[in-house]
Design a protein around this nucleic acid. Structure first.
Length: 113
DNA sequence: GTGGTGACGACAC
DNA sequence: GGTGTCGCCACCA
């Protein structure tokens, strides 16, 4: 594939884009899905470059293991929280309410090999 | 080619 | 149970 962008970044973006409306996921879950479970940091970096993705990446649905909106500082103002609340997700004290219930990790197993 | 960095996670104390 | 520390792997200067 002649992808100019790194395949790892692309994986993170695709997995993030698979998160359905009103659901959230974690960096570790994505890291585990791309095969680098120990590199949850890399997921955050990939989302930080989500503007490079050729499609819309709901990065606001990705929070840390504690359900905290650690990445909201990278959004203009409190857009991240507004987007989550717009989807019916209650955010209190920068933390997703009922995060454990809204947590979603049912990645589509796209086995092409 | 090397060093530093980063939207985190797990473990130790 | 909170805090501190290390690890981790790809990107950027």
């Amino acid at each position: 594939m002649g992808d100019d962008l790194s395949n790892l970044y692309m994986k993170v973006w695709e997995l993030t884009a698979q998160v359905p409306y009103g659901r959230v996921t974690t960096y570790g879950a994505i890291a585990n899905a791309i095969g680098s479970k120990s590199s949850a940091r890399f997921v955050g970096i990939a989302l930080a470059h989500c503007y490079l993705a050729p499609f819309y990446v709901p990065a606001h649905r990705v929070v840390n293991r504690n359900g905290l909106l650690t990445g909201r500082h990278h959004f203009p103002g409190n857009q991240m929280q507004e987007l989550l609340e717009n989807e019916g997700i209650k955010v209190i004290d920068n933390q997703v309410k009922k995060f454990k219930e809204l947590f979603w990790q049912d990645w589509e197993e796209k086995q092409c090999e």
